[in-house]
């Protein structure tokens, strides 16, 4: 009898805390930190998070066509601004949750600075398509700043996203290329292969914006997630994955 009573009290208590669930659309480059953040968030608040990963362009198309996402963590700042203009978001909720960093990366050891770029001793240079990916735009800005754009452009291999750029370089099909720091960082340094972390002064910041979408209006779990994203704990996770916050 006492056990039953305890159970009932616990159930009521659970209802009291209003554990809710929220669906978050996440840009692919933020996959690893998001999984970590979601686990921490669920432990801390009791809410649950369902994360869907796709490129920002695809997520945009899905949101505009009725996908039930409540929060968007984009890979750029243009898409959330565009959705805001189209009244698909909750006004005033947009902010930059992280800034990405690019790495000049090679599967071979020994790359520490931009000198192999200058030497030009490579056939293919992989980068995410600048038309689609802010990380690709940053790569072009870096090459322009180093006055190497004309020489390197002829060797461009455009990847559809960061994951494919990584794949081209990891398989050796492109000797050099651009990936996100978050893809190659392991315990604070570059894990596999070798790379040069491009100084942030060589390109415009790669701002990744978050926004509360219209579908998330009034869901406490969606609000709580955006609040959690601004916490010191969340920022430490993002920093560990190679993002500037």
């Amino acid at each position: 009898m006492r056990r039953l009573l305890t159970l009932i009290i616990l159930l009521i208590a659970a209802l009291e805390t209003h554990a809710e669930s929220t669906s978050v659309a996440v840009a692919v480059n933020f996959t690893a930190p998001m999984q970590k953040l979601a686990a921490e968030f669920e432990k801390e608040t009791g809410h649950t998070v369902a994360a869907s990963f796709a490129s920002t362009g695809k997520l945009y198309a899905q949101i505009r066509n009725g996908a039930p996402f409540e929060v968007l963590l984009a890979a750029d700042d243009e898409t959330p601004a565009k959705l805001e203009k189209e009244a698909a978001t909750v006004a005033g909720s947009r902010y930059t949750y992280a800034s990405g960093r690019i790495v000049l990366w090679s599967a071979k050891p020994g790359l520490v600075d931009e000198s192999p770029l200058k030497a030009g001793d490579f056939r293919h240079f992989a980068l995410p398509n600048p038309r689609l990916a802010p990380y690709g735009v940053a790569a072009v800005e870096m090459l322009t700043a180093l006055k190497l754009i004309d020489a390197v452009q002829a060797k461009f291999v455009l990847a559809e996203n960061l994951a494919q750029s990584y794949q081209y370089i990891a398989t050796g099909n492109a000797e050099l290329g651009i990936v996100a720091l978050s893809q190659v960082i392991k315990e604070g340094r570059i894990g596999e292969g070798s790379g040069w972390i491009v100084p942030a002064t060589l390109h415009q910041p790669i701002r990744q914006d978050a926004v509360l979408l219209s579908a998330g209006r009034g869901n406490p779990a969606a609000d709580a997630f955006l609040t959690f994203l601004k916490s010191t704990k969340a920022k430490a996770v993002m920093r560990a994955y190679g993002y500037d916050v």
């Binding site: 490129s55 362009g57 695809k58 565009k82 293919h124 038309r131 291999v157 559809e160 494919q164």
Partner: peptide
């Protein structure tokens, strides 16, 4: 073609890849 092409104009950027780029670029 998306995997092994590398999206190079006039060499490997075929129609389907071009459409994909248009959609992704909104």
């Amino acid at each position: 073609v998306l995997m092994i092409g590398g999206n190079i104009p006039n060499k490997t950027r075929v129609i389907s890849v071009q459409i994909y780029d248009h959609v992704e670029a909104m």
